[in-house]
Structures are given as C-alpha cells and as structure tokens.
C-alpha cells in the first residue's frame, strides 16, 4: 500500500478502539476538536441518551455513541472515528487528488486542494465525511464564483501533524481508560485478538472485533473496533464494501452503453436520412 513512498514509507499506524472499556467521557471528542481547531457547529439536546453529537461529520471527527439496552440491562458506549480503510472509497473517487494516502497509511484531505465537489461524501460506506457548511474563514478569492460557506470536505486526519512530530493522536492521548489505543496496526491487531480472547473466556456476550479482518470489503480498517453488539446497533454498516471494487465491471457496462448510444443513433437513420 505504501510502496510508492519508497524509503519514506513508515509503519502503518492506526487505532484500536476497545469499546468494552469506554466510559463515555467524551474526552476524545473534546481533545480532537481542540487540537484540530474543529469549529463548534451548534449545541443541541437530542434526547438520545448522553449523545448530543449524533454522528461523525465535517465538524465531528470523534463521536461517542450511547446505547441504552434493557435486556440485558447495560449501557454501551463507543467512540467512532474515520476507519482509514485499506481500500478507501473516498480516496478512490476524489477527482482532484485532494484525498491522499499518507506515509503512515492513513487517509487525509488536503484542504488547500479540495474544491468541495462532494463525491467522497456518499462514497464512504460509513458516512464519515461531510461538507462544512459553516462560514468560510479565509477571504473570498474572487468577486464571483465564491460562496459564503467553507464548502470543503473535512474528516479525521489521524492527527497527521502530531504523527509527524512523533506524538500520538489527540483523542488517544486524552482517553483516560485506553479505550482508544494508537500504534502500529500489526501490534494493535495482536493486542485486539488477545483482548477478544479474554472477554470471550469471561463470557462477555456479543464481544466481537469489527474491521480487524484484512479480507473484508474494505481490506480491513486502519482504525478498527471491539464491539459488544452488532455493528448496526452502533450505527455502523455490518458488511461495508468499497464501492470501487465493482468499478471494472461498471466501466464495462458504461462502455457498452456508450456504444449503444452510437448504435441507436445509427439505427435511427435506417430507412432514410430525412
């Protein structure tokens, strides 16, 4: 994956979010916002347990989900984040090359390049990316063709700047229970396997790893999870697949359809040109 970086390639870094020890403190959300200067985008009470952030988006790069269950009686909490997929749909479909794969194997938007086409938004199987509709901070570039809103797409960078400085991402740094663990992906996977084994030995119902398998539809997540229930309970897709996996057959269909357009026009002239 990082071959093109040559000697500059680094070990692939990622997150292992162990939701079995998440206490829902939201320190990750706050630390992320502070470090990355992610703007405030409205304060609301949703009435959905302790969750008032609701979802990942342009202005929320860590999102703690709260799920109240009655049978068995328990309160699930999970800090969601960009998955930094091995096969990232957002990166594949980005027409400007703004989204790119870093030397750490993470997926980052270059804000000086993004032109806000929005293609990555519905391409992500997790609904991670979104366009920022808050007022733009920099002065308009031109008197015409400029919008009031920021208009670019934003998401978790896995604290690319901190990684370059040899630090762990802000959310992992702030997590008081080590629910969010940062490190080389290979190590994290080993650690997660051991943790799952332990939980299963202790009969924790529903414990499972999500996104750990490099053979899944996105080639495994760079940021994977230990969940205590089915993914959809947390608002996550049960079997995410990178949309571009089907691209060769889609181009084939498009090529045939383009040929059919020409054939159709030619056929219209059968029986006379007027």
């Amino acid at each position: 994956m990082l071959d093109s970086y040559g000697p500059e390639a680094k070990e692939r870094m990622g997150f292992f979010t162990d939701t079995s020890v998440c206490i829902g403190c939201k320190a990750c959300e706050v630390a992320c916002k502070e470090w990355n200067l992610v703007p405030e985008d409205g304060l609301v009470w949703t009435g959905e347990s302790y969750d008032n952030t609701s979802e990942l988006g342009a202005n929320t790069w860590r999102h703690v989900a709260f799920i109240e269950q009655s049978d068995p009686l328990r309160w699930l909490m999970s800090s969601d984040v960009c998955k930094h997929c091995t096969h990232a749909g957002c990166l594949d479909v980005c027409p400007t090359g703004s989204l790119f794969r870093t030397e750490y194997g993470t997926v980052v938007v270059q804000q000086d390049i993004c032109n806000g086409c929005g293609y990555c938004v519905p391409a992500c199987p997790f609904g991670v990316l979104d366009k920022r509709h808050l007022p733009r901070q920099d002065p308009p570039a031109l008197p015409v063709l400029t919008k009031e809103e920021d208009g670019r797409v934003w998401k978790c960078t896995l604290c690319y700047d901190r990684l370059k400085g040899g630090h762990e991402p802000a959310c992992a740094k702030a997590c008081p229970t080590d629910s969010i663990q940062f490190g080389p992906l290979d190590e994290l996977r080993e650690r997660a396997d051991k943790r799952l084994e332990k939980l299963q030995a202790e009969n924790w119902n529903g414990a499972r790893l999500y996104g750990r398998d490099p053979g899944d539809g996105v080639g495994g997540f760079g940021a994977f999870f230990l969940l205590l229930d089915e993914p959809e309970v947390y608002g996550l897709p049960p079997d995410p697949v990178v949309t571009t996996r089907d691209l060769p057959s889609m181009y084939r269909s498009a090529a045939i359809a383009a040929g059919a357009v020409v054939a159709g026009v030619l056929a219209a002239f059968v029986g006379g040109s007027t």
Binding site: V93, C94, P95, T96, R132, L145, G151, R152
Partner: peptide, 25 residues
C-alpha cells in the same frame, strides 16, 4: 457543475490529475 462546487474558484483542480478510479475525474 462549477456552481455546485463548495469552492467554485477551485474548479480547475478537476484537471490537476486524471484518475481512472474516479468517474468524476
């Protein structure tokens, strides 16, 4: 198309690269 962009003044960025994985490119 330009009017739909979040950053219309950057429409030329569409021609920065040719990416076969992106039908929009």
């Amino acid at each position: 198309l330009i009017s739909d962009l979040g950053r219309p003044e950057r429409f030329l960025n569409m021609f920065r690269v040719f990416k076969v994985t992106s039908p929009m490119s």
